[in-house]
Amino acid sequence: MTLRNVLETKKINKYFFDPVKFQVLSDITFSVKQGEFVSVVGKSGCGKSTLLYILSTMDTDFEGELFINGEPLTNNSDKDLARIRNEYIGFVFQFHYLLNEYNVLKNVMIPGIKLAKYSYEEIEHRAMEHLRTLDMHSQALKSPNQLSGGQKQRVAIARALINDPLIVMGDEPTGNLDKKNSDMVFDIFNAIVQEKKQTMLIVTHDADFAQRTHRIIEMADGKIISETNTLHRRSAPTDITT
């Protein structure tokens, strides 16, 4: 079975003009297949976050081509892009960005209500299930500001997963977590990849975390300098075969 490309870029270049013209990304070309768990590493300031914002469709100011789920993303309206983010992409940022106006459960549900693929009750049920896998179901009715940092991050992960996105992108999602919580997040991501064939693209500074993913993309000065397949070091998961 050949797995399709969930994400593909061709020669992405990006410049910043303020204060001086400066190329952040040069000729970024790579692809991610469905069910892959990819990590992106590199020195601080090498352009990882910038790349992720482009891949997530939030930043449209770049040169080159971007394909999500095989569809080219050029000249899409703000509405189309919002819809693509809502349906196909889940985000986890270093900072959690929960809405304090809503409780934990509702925070997880909002992207689902926005997509409106399922009924309210169904979304509520699914949100509860995601919280349960993250061991957060007992906190479902709390307000986000009553949670610890790690707990908030887990809620943000549940929110990223609510619409069963094709790909989950994370920008240092474990950056604020201790070893135990960081391991837990890794296990959850890994389980999603294994069980639901969803895809992960995670920017991380945690070498240990990166080593355990399927593939490591290393960046330096806005370029991809190496791609390392780590799967061969371990016994490949039975369902990731080509």
Binding site: R83, R85, N86, Y97, L98, L99, P111, K114
Partner: peptide, 16 residues
């Protein structure tokens, strides 16, 4: 600002 940013990141368009 943060809430607006996250709403946009999770699928709300400018007009929403």
């Amino acid at each position: 600002m943060d809430s607006i940013a996250i709403l946009k990141a999770t699928g709300f368009s400018g007009s929403d």
